[in-house]
């Protein structure tokens, strides 16, 4: 399959390893990845902070960039949720944006959805000999409804031991601008989440959203916990020949 990668602005700028892992993984599975260079940002931060017009402009640009794609991979649960759940609220009913979003949104996937639903693969041939715990992230859990998909993918990874995370469904406290506007509450939530992660004894905390991982990882680092955070793509891209470093 020819898959258009919308890497997202945060991954592009701060977490390029995630994008590279996605490319490696999908090419290993025999698919073609394209990266339309006109892409920028889904507009989530603008939308969630109340800047609807700016978000609308970015939605228009996204739709224009990806309208021809067979499948769009968004390796960030919250950005995928922004496109699928909030873009339909941005265009007036019957407007060109409204129609184009309705047409494109069903072909927009998070990584776990792309693999399990569109490509029909659970065992991606990965090797990752480490203990891992998974944080489902709010958008992955409640908006996209990823359910068991990420766990199924992780359980199929050779060498990986999955540890259950206490209070997994609770928000980590990132919340975009919430992390700045209500910094104390945000970090109180982050510290509680980091404590649950540390209690599992896992070496790696995995999620489908680097924004949440940046937040929890920032706390884990500050606590010198030694727990490393990794996007699902990086674990699935890891093989015996080219193991991911942790």
């Amino acid at each position: 399959m020819r898959i258009a990668l919308f890497v997202t602005c945060v991954n592009d700028t701060v977490f390029p390893d995630t994008g590279r892992a996605v490319v490696r993984l999908l090419e290993r599975l025999g698919h073609e990845v394209v990266f339309p260079e006109a892409q920028t940002c889904c507009g989530q931060m603008h939308y969630n902070t109340g800047y609807r017009r700016e978000a609308q402009r970015l939605a228009v640009s996204f739709v224009k960039t990806f309208s021809d794609a067979d499948a769009v991979l968004v390796p960030s649960g919250s950005c995928a949720a922004m496109i699928r759940d909030n873009y339909p609220r941005l265009g007036e009913t019957g407007s060109p944006l409204d129609r184009e979003v309705a047409e494109l949104a069903p072909r927009v996937y998070d990584l776990a959805e792309l693999l399990v639903d569109a490509l029909g693969v659970v065992d991606v041939g990965a090797y990752f000999p480490h203990t891992v715990t998974y944080h489902p992230t709010c958008h992955g859990l409640r908006v996209l409804g990823l359910g068991e998909r990420p766990y199924t993918l992780l359980r199929a990874v050779r060498g990986l031991e999955l540890r259950e995370l206490d209070g997994a469904t609770e928000c980590c406290g990132f919340g975009g601008t919430f992390a700045m506007k209500n910094a104390e509450v945000s970090s109180a939530m982050g510290w509680d989440k980091a404590r649950s992660v540390a209690t599992t004894g896992a070496e790696v905390l995995c999620a489908v959203d680097n924004s949440c991982l940046m937040h929890i990882g920032g706390v884990l680092n500050r606590q010198r916990s030694g727990v490393r955070v990794m996007h699902l793509a990086e674990i699935l891209a890891s093989t015996e020949e080219e193991p991911a470093r942790i």
Partner: peptide, 25 residues
């Protein structure tokens, strides 16, 4: 300044030298 709201309790991620976009090109 305002960014202290983040760094008071959380480390910042390391900024990579090369973006994904540049790597792709």
């Amino acid at each position: 300044g305002p960014a202290a709201a983040w760094t008071d309790t959380r480390d910042l991620p390391e900024i990579p030298e090369r973006s994904f976009r540049r790597w792709w090109r």
